[in-house]
């Protein structure tokens, strides 16, 4: 597949650049057929494919609980949720393909550990309460990140995000609803919920990425309107939204510095452990190796099935052509 960039005649770039800049400035959508700067295309390929990989790897921590969900209703909800995540991965790979990359190649990059995904999915899910807390905090943080992306300058990404955000809001809701039920249950269940909140709170804050001062890509991505808010702004928004939810639920967020600041009109909160973040991002998290290995094993084990489908399609299109 080739891109419009490659087809642009030499010398035409200046006009094309001006046209692109004007479109972005006017909040119009850039579509795959439009000319775009190579850096914009590369940034999008990276962001969209990492996002797709995150959906796919993100199926695992919760997927592990489908078989043991403690009621049939919870089992059905969780199965539907994990299925949605596979669907989100598919839309996003399709959006990435409009930029001239190939899904099979992106999959290879994931299973060979050459492309990243959200660091949050490298933490283990230890009890069924984790299912609820992942829905509430992890999907909640994802929604904060993603709602602004529905206005992203790249059309296919923005449209994929509209659909994904709708489903994510259901995911968050089911997580919160599970936690509500558990908090109304036994003392042991309440302890399970608090323990899960303690483990997932800081990793959830890290989902917004490093502080703005250390986020090299943010300024350019905002100028291109791929991103619409800075990491720190989104993190603040998430904290402000989550604190009242935690109070209603009856759990304590594990941050002694968390306090309302009337002057700012926001909650003040502590710094996540950015060293841990860097370690997890660079592959040394508790579950990095296992998550990627599982995907790799499924992919390799399924190779003969994909080959069969290709061979069958080849034979039958040849028969149809001959008919």
């Amino acid at each position: 597949m080739t891109t419009q960039t490659a087809q642009a005649p030499p010398g035409a770039d200046l006009d094309l650049q001006a046209e692109f800049d004007a479109k972005v400035a006017a909040d119009q959508r850039i579509e795959p057929r439009d000319w775009m700067p190579e850096g914009y295309r590369k940034t999008l390929v990276r962001q969209v494919s990492q996002h797709a990989h995150s959906e796919i790897i993100g199926m695992q921590p919760e997927g592990d609980w489908i078989a043991s969900a403690p009621s049939l209703r919870r089992k059905a909800i969780l199965l539907a949720k994990v299925q949605d995540e596979a669907g989100h991965g598919l839309y996003l790979y399709a959006a990435a393909e409009t930029l001239g990359v190939d899904r099979a190649d992106l999959t290879r990059r994931l299973i060979e550990g050459r492309q990243k995904y959200s660091s949050i999915f490298n933490y283990p899910s230890l009890t069924f309460a984790d299912v609820g807390v992942i829905g509430w905090l992890v999907d909640g943080a994802a929604i904060c990140n993603q709602v602004p992306l529905c206005r992203s300058s790249f059309g296919p990404y923005a449209r994929a995000m509209v659909r994904i955000c709708k489903e994510e809001s259901f995911h968050q809701r089911q997580g919160y609803e599970l936690l509500m039920r558990m908090m109304e249950g036994t003392e042991e269940q309440r302890r399970m919920v608090q323990d899960a909140v303690d483990r997932w709170w800081w990793p959830s804050l890290m989902m917004f990425g490093p502080p703005d001062a250390e986020s090299p890509n943010t300024q350019q991505s905002m100028a291109w309107r791929i991103k619409r808010d800075t990491n720190d702004d989104l993190r603040q928004k998430f904290v402000d939204m989550t604190v009242p939810q935690a109070e209603k639920l009856g759990v304590t967020l594990p941050d002694p510095e968390l306090v309302w600041n009337g002057e700012r009109g926001h909650y003040d909160f502590g710094e996540p452990d950015w060293n841990e973040f860097k370690q997890v991002i660079s592959g040394a998290g508790p579950k990095n190796a296992e998550r990627v290995e599982r995907r790799r094993a499924a992919h390799e084990k399924g190779a003969w099935v994909r080959e069969a489908a290709t061979a069958y399609a080849g034979k039958h299109s040849a028969k149809e052509a001959a008919a």
Binding site: I56, M59, Q60, G63, I66, L79, V82, Q83, A86, G89, L90, Y93, R294, R295, A297, A298, H299, K301, G302, A303, V305, R306
Partner: peptide
Amino acid sequence: VTDAPELEEE
């Protein structure tokens, strides 16, 4: 789910 030959199959 998480173990099929393709995402579509999952």
